[in-house]
């Protein structure tokens, strides 16, 4: 049994190097973010005007090092980056999860049942996808206020059509597969078939997209913060750290560089996960052509 289990999709997932590296990265980042308050060497909100805009590696009054320097209020940049990871991570993980769940459900229903319900859901998906995500998202935040759960809600509501479109295509393909017909003839009820055949068929692609969206959400959340539309200070987020750094581009390059790299690292891990999973799910697309 076990020998056979590792020949299946699961085995290929476990053995895929990209997935392995990406998962390790994401787990480490998540753990660091969770424990950031105790890991941070300084209080991220503690101002110390004596040590304003110190470059990386400078020593503080008590001899402790500001690993990545200090900002315009003398706050430790490294501690702020650590603690600032929490908001983007919470926002992107929850929005990706919620969006994927809602999109999967709606998409699978549309793709499996087809007919008028599919036409209606298709219209809704197209309507949502034809509006510029960032602009409408920011408009909602301005209208409803920039709280954590509002931002999660905005990302979820704006991204479900992306998941739904993928789930719908996959469900439609799966519904045409003979093994689904075989299940129907074998006595499978609609719920049985949806749970055992259609959703499992749609799930891998939805997870790939969820990972890509996760990366996109981390980046977008920081863009919101950058334009002052994210979770407001004093809570540090990578977005508002970058926003603050804008005025000190010339004096303190480190303030803008490191939060950006942190964002890129998470997004990179998520995208690496997506590309590894894609390799497993769709080996055909990674093979060479005749020429």
């Amino acid at each position: 049994m076990s020998a056979s289990a590792f020949n299946g999709v699961l085995g290929r997932v476990i053995r895929n190097r990209r997935i392995l590296i990406a998962t390790a990265l994401l787990v480490i980042i998540a753990c660091v973010a969770l424990a950031s308050k105790s890991l941070a060497p300084f209080d991220p909100l503690q101002q110390n005007l004596r040590f304003r805009l110190m470059p990386p590696g400078s020593l503080g009054a008590d001899g402790r090092m500001f690993l990545l320097g200090t900002d315009q209020f003398g706050r430790d940049a490294f501690s702020r980056i650590l603690v600032g990871a929490r908001v983007p991570l919470i926002v992107s993980f929850s929005a990706a999860l919620l969006g994927a769940a809602i999109g999967l459900l709606i998409g699978v229903i549309a793709g499996y049942f087809q007919g008028w319900i599919d036409s209606l859901i298709g219209l809704l998906i197209d309507a949502q996808l034809s509006i510029p995500f960032v602009l409408v998202g920011m408009m909602v935040v301005v209208l409803f206020g920039p709280s954590l759960h509002n931002i999660v809600l905005v990302f979820t509501l704006l991204s479900w059509p992306i998941f739904a479109r993928i789930a719908r295509d996959e469900a439609r393909l799966a519904a045409r597969q003979q093994f689904v017909e075989a299940s129907l003839i074998g006595g499978g009820t609609t719920t049985w078939i949806l749970l055992r055949h259609i959703i499992p068929a749609a799930l891998p692609r939805v997870i790939v997209v969820a990972a890509i969206q996760l990366a996109y959400f981390v980046v977008s959340e920081s863009a919101f913060g950058f334009f002052g539309l994210g979770v407001p200070p004093p809570e540090p987020t990578w977005g508002n750290i970058l926003s603050d750094s804008r005025s000190y581009l010339f004096q303190a390059w480190w303030l803008g560089l490191f939060p950006g790299l942190a964002i890129a690292l998470i997004a990179f891990a998520a995208n690496l996960f997506a590309s590894g999973l894609n390799e497993v799910v769709d080996p055909a697309s990674t093979r060479g052509s005749t020429f």
Binding site: G8, Q178, E181, A182, I185
Partner: peptide, 14 residues
């Protein structure tokens, strides 16, 4: 019950 032409397609790969 039914038996189809393509046995690969009528069994779920999962």
């Amino acid at each position: 019950q039914m038996v189809f032409q393509d046995p690969a397609a009528s069994l779920s790969p999962r």
